[in-house]
Simulated assay, not measured.
Amino acid sequence: MIWTYCEQWNNLTEKPMTPLTPEQAEARHASGELYTAVSSPAEQSTPTLRVEMRLETGYASVIFMDESGRDTLDYTFTLINGSLFLETATSRSYGNSQERGGYADADRTETYEFTTDGVMQRAIEEEGGESKESRHGVDVSSNWEPVPAFGAYASLIRRER
């Protein structure tokens, strides 16, 4: 994977906002300031995922994108006692939409919210409405991740969880 860095990613233009050198991004990682690592496989010029880090506020997110630059899967982590906890997982599908990036509206969104004590809430939004359910006693041990060193995102960016 090839990583490039910026302050934030613009979904509408599908381009980085305030590009950063690796050294600038590493300094932001160390200080906890916001930065985004954008990955493109060597054979593609279109990014396939982003890692957003803002450790000063306890936030990290991994966003997987499709070939049209649309967010399809988002894992949001919160910093608790020095480790990252997967708090929210959101998947989006776009059906036959030809819209790109931030211009596309998902035709189905499925969101899972987790608590450290094993409560999971699931919400599904689609054209026909919304449904919700809760479960207690869910094993959330796999929701924990160590805070990665700068550039070492392999464990954090696992798609299958």
Rank of each mutant, 00 (worst) to 15 (best):
S91D: 10
E87Q: 12
L55I: 06
R28P: 04
F85P: 06
E67S: 15
E56I: 08
E33P: 03
E110Q: 15
G102E: 01
E52R: 14
R54L: 05
V38D: 03
Q98F: 02
A30Q: 15
T48L: 04
L84T: 08
L34I: 09
A104G: 09
D74C: 12
T21S: 15
D74V: 13
G118L: 01
E99D: 15
E56F: 03
Y103T: 00
G69W: 00
E43C: 03
P47S: 01
E87V: 02
V51D: 00
V38T: 15
G102C: 07
E33N: 13
S40C: 10
M53S: 14
T78D: 00
D117Q: 08
S61M: 12
V38W: 02
P47L: 05
L86I: 00
E33G: 04
D117K: 12
S40K: 15
A27T: 11
L79H: 10
Y112S: 11
F85V: 03
L34D: 04
T78H: 00
E23H: 12
S39Y: 06
T115C: 01
T72Q: 09
T116A: 09
E43W: 00
S91K: 12
E87K: 14
A104R: 09
T111S: 13
V38M: 14
G82A: 01
D105A: 11
P22Y: 08
T72D: 00
A25W: 03
A27D: 13
E26R: 15
E99G: 07
I63T: 15
Y94S: 04
I63E: 12
Y75D: 10
F77M: 01
H29W: 14
T88C: 01
L84G: 02
D107R: 05
E67D: 14
S39P: 04
R54A: 13
L73S: 11
A106Q: 03
D107N: 15
F114T: 04
Y59E: 09
S93L: 07
P22R: 09
G102S: 07
L73D: 12
T48H: 06
S31G: 05
A27R: 15
R70K: 09
T57S: 08
D107H: 14
G82D: 10
Y59A: 07
R100I: 05
T57F: 00
D66M: 06
D105E: 13
